[in-house]
Amino acid sequence: MATSWTRKKGTRRVTNGCTCSTSYLCRDRAWRRGGVAEHATCVASGTWTTTRKKAFVPRNVCLDALKVSFQGVPGAYSEQAAKKCYPDAEVVPCPDFETTHKQVADSSVDRAVIPVENSLGGSIHVNYDLLMKYRLHITGEVYHKVRHCLLANPGVAKEDIRRVQSHPQALAQCDGYLDSLNDGVIKEAVDDTAGAAQGISLDKDCRDTAALASSLAGELYGLDLLDQDCQDNDQNLTRFIILSRDPLAISEDKEYKTSIVFTAGDEPGDLFKALSVFALRDIYLTKIENRPIPQFIVESMDNEDLFQNLFYVDFKGSLSDESCQNALRHLSEVSAFMRILGSYPADA
């Protein structure tokens, strides 16, 4: 479901599925009279209403009955992350990231586990854009260590390998290893790591080609493990976020992160003013990402009123913390648009 943008006193507003007075989460009187605190109470209590004014209480879904979507074919690193979050859930593969989001939005599945950044490759920009397109909430995060394995058909020796297939990022992360393998091998980019393993398994005559993928992919597709930990840097971590249709009720006994997106003006010092609301309250920022306005939003906006950039920020703290509420209230006074993406337990 696309996010709707509506003219509001010279700004644009966005709804987030909540009908407390802060539902548009932008610069408005509701924020200045304490609307941030009202929205935080709404989320923290676990009870809110949809934009159709129907009372809605989160479902008590048994975790082993959950359906969780991920991008890729079975054996993908995203599947490993999904099973790490929900070991007993039914995992549902999706061909692309947008389908992963859509399945949560249309209630085909209960959760999605998607990657947003890698310690070596950086941010996965398409997923930041999709956070603006779908009215989903971030309800958790997990860091997953990526361990690339060299996989080939049964009976193929490591010395026989002349070509290696994998996702471009995986090939780049193993560049040094591949250059030294058999005096250098041909690197072939494919759509995803597990897909490379699947493709090789379907061609039993493929005796000179290997895949870089997870050990799970090797097990699923009956491939031999020729080598493991092929990445050049052992500190290869991918951060995944969990998406849900409903925000998470806040517990007081956990360390939390909160993710937001906002715009800053184009005058000197505008970004400084926006970020200073956190510094003034000693709130620790764990990430800031600058992205252009997605095309699907640009098409619905007036040319003379386009926001130049979106800033995605993660910080330590929850919506129940008074300092965070005050910071968000202050930010709403200096930013034309802001939206809370989620407040969730931080992965240790």
Rank of each mutant, 00 (worst) to 15 (best):
L171T: 05
C94F: 00
D28I: 08
K133S: 05
S323E: 15
I242W: 00
N233T: 11
R111E: 05
E289L: 12
C42I: 02
V277R: 02
L248F: 01
A55N: 05
I161T: 03
H148N: 12
Q325I: 11
G218E: 06
D253W: 09
T6W: 11
L223Q: 01
H148D: 15
T19L: 11
K287S: 15
I283S: 02
A152S: 06
A65I: 07
H137E: 09
L66H: 07
N309A: 09
P345Q: 10
I250W: 00
R207S: 13
N233E: 15
D192E: 11
V146C: 07
S214I: 05
R27H: 14
Y128H: 08
G218P: 00
K83A: 03
D191H: 14
S166V: 06
L285S: 06
Y177Q: 05
V261D: 01
S300Q: 14
S343V: 04
E117N: 13
T22F: 06
C62I: 10
L226F: 06
C62G: 08
R33N: 11
Q325V: 10
K67F: 13
R339I: 07
I340T: 07
G35P: 05
V91N: 05
V298Y: 03
Q308W: 06
I161S: 08
A55V: 13
F56S: 11
P247C: 11
G222Q: 05
H144R: 11
L130T: 00
N233R: 14
N290V: 14
N118C: 09
D282N: 11
V164Q: 02
G34P: 09
C174R: 00
L285T: 06
L66C: 12
V109G: 05
I283P: 00
V334D: 09
